[in-house]
Design a protein around this nucleic acid. Structure first.
Lengths: 106, 106
DNA sequence: TTTTTAGGAAACCAAAAGGTTTCATAATAT
DNA sequence: ATATTATGAAACCTTTTGGTTTCCTAAAAA
């Protein structure tokens, strides 16, 4: 199975989890309590996030604290940002023109 | 099924498709030819991208040109960017400190 | 020392994802 | 007029996803 940041943040629940722990680590049960779905379901999401490196877990007694490693989002940020100037500057009419050209060429 | 930009770009093939048409629209068959998987498989990816608004299709004779609408990536860009200063500025030792605090509080 | 509490993991399930082959149709090219 | 090309769509298949319930263990609290 794919385990990268793109796939990790595709799920809205996982985005929420990252949001929750972005500024302050939380133990696993604190995270799971905030959701309607079962603890095990959230636990699995946390596991996936851990496998992607977006979370690291630190043991503290019997509790395990989830800490967001948001630099792993850089992969996504870089990919998206390469297109920013296109979406901010492009004139749609150019596309139409390019389509015309390509059709004519044949 | 979920149909948003996050889910759309989770698949590497769909990211490649967007890359291909980012600067110049291509007709559907031109896109499908560049991949190892079947035409129909790629066609489905294009359909998903269309449903998300990341692609629009323009008819030109019997051909249909795919045009990237990259501004739909803004949703992803915004979400990711809100965390950039965290991953660039955060000191990991702060997390450890916060975990200590929370454990003590009980 | 008993009882909670935090976390881990297995077994199972339905739906979604990603792929295939096959067939159909409407423009174009020959 | 016929063959080819570009696309659409149905039927089908396997694996992954996201969820559940259940059971287990170890630390901490009463």
């Amino acid at each position: 199975m794919r385990r990268d940041s793109f796939q990790a943040i595709a799920d809205p629940t996982r985005r929420e989890i990252l949001q929750m722990i972005a500024y302050k680590p939380l133990n696993i049960n604190s995270v799971t309590e905030k959701f309607d779905v079962s603890r095990t379901a959230i636990y699995k999401h946390i596991k996936i996030l851990t496998e992607c490196g977006l979370i690291t877990v630190k043991q503290q007694g019997r509790e395990r604290y989830c800490e967001a490693k948001l630099d792993k989002l850089k992969e996504v940020a870089d990919w998206v940002e390469q297109y920013r100037k296109i979406w901010t500057e492009r004139l749609d009419s150019l596309d139409d023109y390019l389509i015309q050209i390509q059709t004519k060429e044949k």
